[in-house]
């Protein structure tokens, strides 16, 4: 998704001539939509499976985006416009109005998710059933897609196009290890994302390394920690549990053997 958005953003920049989140949003949505259509077309008319089709289309779009980005940098004085930061992200390049946009979007998202949580849950879990009981599935799905595209476009400046998808997915993956409830998972994912963002931005400030990679490193560290040490689902607790079970089994076996001897 983030990869597919890049050419759209570049074209939007070329047409509009300056950096504007709204214009970028439109560009990103357009090229994201075209990418989706391409993927569906490939799946429907060839023997290529969906995952492969996604891989092909996204890499082509991303390649196209990089070409455009390079061209912009060489011809349009892109360095001054800050579009270069879209590749790896630079939180410091955010202006005051960008921050306002970010805030408004974040609040809108949280409210939308709170209001339609039940509906988003059912359309993600079982779309057919949701449709059957009269939930407006395509409308809500559209809203969900719109939210995702907005997040991608807005996040692009901070973490960059390369790592945006990682930022979307990693905190959620980490959160999954701690809970079996979607409500908690959503909240935790948000907290993990915020923590990584905060830590990454701060580190970027003092080390002069681009923000994006640092944020993702923190997010990945959180994920690894969850993967290893989360209670119940974590790897360590699984190993310990297996060990305990094995011991119990050995004791039982021993008791049976003794019993037979007696």
């Amino acid at each position: 998704m983030a990869h597919a958005a890049l050419p759209g953003i570049c074209i939007a920049f070329l047409l509009y001539g300056q950096k504007s989140l709204l214009v970028f949003l439109i560009g990103a949505a357009c090229s994201g939509y075209i990418a989706t259509v391409c993927i569906q077309f490939i799946v429907k008319h060839t023997r290529i499976k969906e995952d492969a089709a996604i891989g092909i289309v996204l890499s082509v779009f991303f390649g196209l985006g990089i070409v455009l980005l390079t061209w912009i940098n060489q011809h349009e004085g892109g360095n001054q416009s800050g579009i270069n930061d879209f590749l790896f992200g630079k939180a410091a390049s955010l202006t005051g109005s960008d921050v306002n946009v970010l805030t408004v979007t974040a609040v809108t998202m949280i409210i939308t998710i709170l209001v339609f949580f039940k509906e988003f849950k059912i359309i993600t879990f079982d779309r057919a059933f949701a449709q059957g009981i009269g939930v407006p599935v395509s409308l809500l799905n559209g809203v969900l897609m719109f939210l995702i595209v907005s997040v991608v476009v807005i996040g692009l400046q901070a973490v960059g196009v390369v790592l945006m998808s990682a930022l979307l997915i990693t905190p959620a993956l980490a959160a999954r290890y701690w809970t079996e409830k979607l409500e908690w998972m959503t909240l935790l994912a948000g907290v993990f994302g915020a923590l990584s963002g905060l830590a990454g931005a701060y580190m970027s400030l003092i080390t002069y390394v681009p923000t994006g990679p640092l944020v993702i490193i923190f997010a990945t560290a959180l994920f690894l920690f969850s993967f290893l040490f989360a209670p119940k689902r974590g790897l360590c607790s699984k190993i310990i549990r297996r060990h305990v079970e094995r011991k119990k089994l050995r004791v039982k076996q021993l008791m049976y053997e003794r019993g037979e001897q007696l």
Partner: peptide, 23 residues
């Protein structure tokens, strides 16, 4: 999917509960 059995059964009530309202 991160949810429990009761939650899945509650989904059957969503049509009665209506949009955006809680069970």
């Amino acid at each position: 999917f991160p949810t429990n059995a009761l939650d899945v059964v509650l989904m059957g009530r969503y049509g009665h509960i209506g949009l955006w309202k809680r069970p």
